[in-house]
Design a protein around this nucleic acid. Structure first.
Lengths: 250, 250
DNA sequence: ATACTTAGCGTAAATTTTACTCTTTCATAG
DNA sequence: CTATGAAAGAGTAAAATTTACGCTAAGTAT
């Protein structure tokens, strides 16, 4: 196993979060502006996913919630583990120096555990994250990110697309009261497909956990849509895993 | 953030593997016999999942492959990340002392990344793992495991059941040539349901990636079944994610 | 030869998905 | 104060898929 000291010394664990929001048209991800001074003394600006090294007495979920709490003010944010990025060479050179400088440590390696988070992207949240030097960027508009965060983001988007149909993620991204059209726009944005509105409606309203709240849109230049909400209790009770090849036959 | 030294010192990362095999009737998991001396000087025997601390220059996938290669002799084993167990108190007291003694280190905390592995459980493999002091145990027969490995195993089983319908995992557990009946037995064992043989057959044989090899069973006291194989190339080409709520409408 | 056992084919009913038609209800323009 | 445009929302018939189950085929064991 080699020098046993090397097994654990000077390596740390971090969490990084891919935070997704939906503005009614497109999915957006939350990026933090990073300022650093390059080898040539020039200041450079780029973007990164929010994250942090974990403290020695802190679980990963706790660390992710700490990061998200600070950045969004949301304490009970929807957060799930996505995977670990552990290539020994994923952070080296200038990037490693930046981490060591930023945290005041002297690491040779950082293993990061990635979480994805889903939020309701309202004005309060946009204001809050602005003050934290973070901004919401459409997925198509994301440029070069710090560290290996482009890789991480690509994985996170794939993860989101794959899980979206299996877990009730949509209702974390929409307001608590939403119209069928809003839900459809979200499905279309995430899955990247066009959906027939009449069939979508039928399918969605057939789900027992989508319940009308008895209110309607106002001020729209057409028939106002009814509002619905997601009933998690009913969902949890009724939900049968119906994916892949299903076999229910006797 | 407290003393920055504490961020990374004296904590290590390990990998643990939940290795599943199918003996034609039931799913089994591979457990390693562990011997340790308790506080009272008594020797105790129990079981644990295979795992290892990672070396400082080693990625997690590499570490998991290293562990599995040593234990099974299989270098290209099917292996996927499952999740991270990072509770600061998941390993303490005697269990932590055991790790420190076993690896000759002085850790205060171990974060573990769990992988699950799927293997073809043939006689060669059973012989090989026996020599490594490991044994195959039916999922229902697993008793108290070391550390938090009962927790980990429960998570892994849930993961397996959930992913089983989405990814072509069955063909990692079966011989390369298999009958429809063998595949059905596996589905029934993993999903815990009874399946109508005639409908199962229709559904399976409708998949373009299940191709007959043109051989039949011999020596059975009934009509011999034909052998099929899984064609990964066709699968990868044809595979559309058809899960959850599907929307294909115009 | 006969019984037994599982493989494997076929088919009709039930259910779900797809593709469209048409009506309703609002704001706004003339 | 009607006409128009726009999206909501109900409905329906054809197509595809799933479910339930009957029946024949091809081996070994007695």
């Amino acid at each position: 196993m080699g020098d046993p000291t090397l097994i654990y010394n000077r390596q740390a664990i971090s969490v990084d979060c891919a935070v997704f929001g939906f503005d009614g048209r497109a999915l957006k991800v939350l990026l933090i502006r990073r300022r650093r001074v390059g080898a040539d003394g020039e200041e450079r600006l780029d973007n990164k996913l929010p994250g942090s090294l974990i403290a020695s007495n802190e679980g990963l979920e706790a660390a992710a919630h700490r990061v998200m709490g600070e950045l969004t003010g949301i304490e009970d944010i929807y957060l799930r583990q996505m995977g670990v990025f552990s290539d020994p060479l994923r952070v080296t050179g200038e990037e490693l120096e930046w981490i060591n400088g930023y945290y005041g440590v002297d690491l040779t390696r950082v293993v990061t555990v990635v979480f994805y988070a889903l939020v309701r992207l309202d004005q309060r949240l946009i204001d809050y994250t602005s003050r934290k030097n973070a901004k919401w960027v459409e997925l198509g508009e994301v440029k070069r990110l710090a560290l290996d965060h482009n890789n991480i983001l690509v994985s996170a988007i794939g993860f989101l697309m794959e899980r979206f149909g299996h877990e009730p993620m949509a209702y974390e991204l929409l307001p608590r009261k939403f119209t069928v059209r809003m839900l459809q726009n979200l499905y279309e944005a995430v899955l990247g497909v066009e959906i027939d509105n009449r069939n979508f409606r039928k399918k969605i309203l057939a789900q027992s956990y989508i319940v009308p709240v008895g209110e309607k849109e106002t001020g729209v230049a057409h028939k106002p849509a009814g509002y619905y909400r997601f009933d998690r209790k009913v969902y949890d009770r009724e939900h049968k895993r119906r994916c892949g090849l299903n076999f229910y036959g006797k």
